[in-house]
Design a protein around this nucleic acid. Structure first.
Lengths: 199, 199
DNA sequence: GCCGATGTGGCAGAAACTGACAGATGTGAG
DNA sequence: CTCACATCTGTCAGTTTCTGCCACATCGGC
């Protein structure tokens, strides 16, 4: 557990435990149709004590973070090795698609994400994962932006890309999910990248 | 208290009480340098019982909402009667400036806003006020956008304008506030509106 | 096998909330 | 102006979330 070492066994176990608890919470939330389940119930269903739950998730709502972090990492991985010949818009859309298992969103996930969008405390955790994505996307866009200038010229386009994606996605989720998500994303990203002068 | 009537005396009093409690909380937060003050203390300083506090603010963090709502309304008012001859970028920057008392941010406000930016639960309340601003800005941009098209073509530009403003503002706050905020805003808004084809 | 480091659970308690009731204070009809 | 009614407020008890502390189990290196 030194510094930049890869995770030790104990750390990996803790991570797995957090993921398991998160998944348990997700299943309970979807089954209930709301997010009001008590810590006691989630902890018991996951086979741990409430005290251990709170050790891993200081605030109850943190329980969903591993889920969002996982998809954020999937997007980051999909974006890591994109050749410069690919159109940025297509690369970003493809990265998002790659983050969904099977390239599409299941009914189960759709119900869960609806809860996450409509419950402010949980929506906040989603946004925190998006904040990490901002850095990844900033790294990707870096090579495609005019060099120099104010620091904001680097971070703002990435920030806007992530938030445009979020806006489109939330519209898609709340409006019944019967539109072509990829097409909507392409459209929105083109708007953002055009303004940011991405080549 | 029928439907679209103007507020009755009782309602106005409740609104004033909420504003007074919010202001009290702000002063305590700034004096402490953090937002950890207990409900009991804020309520006592405002001259009400904790029970009354929670009646007006179901969740403790809601206490700052009146403050953000007030500035959001100020921006909305400043934007309401802008003639079409004014450049949208200038109109938006002017609206933000008009929302600050005296056209600039006091040291007191700066400290308070720093706390709001760095504390996720409070940052969320700020974003909720921004969400209301989105509708106002969508109304303003409506006349300046190509007609027709998908609903997202109306809401997305406003959403991006608000979030670009937020990003610039948070950068400005956290980096010491010694840059030219207006210039940064102008720059960011030009980027967004160029992509959205605002005329 | 031993031993320090770390994770876990139980318990007590702080703090954030909520429901219910009683008293105070508006609000409106006559 | 007065009375009846609605609304707001405070007190109190109770639930839920979250934390500090300690004992115990497990892990990981020697």
């Amino acid at each position: 557990m030194a510094k930049g070492e890869r995770p030790t066994l104990t750390e990996r176990r803790a991570e797995e435990l957090r993921a398991a608890i998160a998944r348990t919470a997700m299943e309970i939330f979807v089954a209930d149709g709301d997010t009001s389940a008590k810590v006691e119930r989630i902890a018991e269903a996951a086979g741990v004590s409430p005290r251990t739950f709170h050790r891993h998730f200081p605030v109850k709502e943190d329980v969903v973070r591993p889920l969002f972090r996982a998809t954020a990492e999937a997007v980051a991985n999909a974006l890591r090795d994109v050749p410069d010949t690919v159109d940025p818009v297509e690369a970003l859309v493809a990265a998002w698609t790659a983050a969904m298992p099977g390239g599409r969103i299941s009914e189960f996930d759709r119900r869960f994400l609806t809860l996450m969008v409509t419950t402010p405390e949980y929506r906040l955790r989603w946004q925190e994962a998006d904040a990490e994505l901002c850095e990844v996307i900033a790294g990707y866009l870096d090579r495609r932006l005019p060099a120099g200038g104010h620091p904001l010229h680097r971070t703002l386009p990435a920030y806007l890309v992530v938030h445009a994606t979020r806006h489109v996605f939330e519209h898609w989720i709340t409006s019944g999910s019967d539109e072509d998500l990829d097409a909507l994303l392409r459209d929105a990203l083109r708007m953002v990248l055009a303004g940011a002068a991405v080549r």
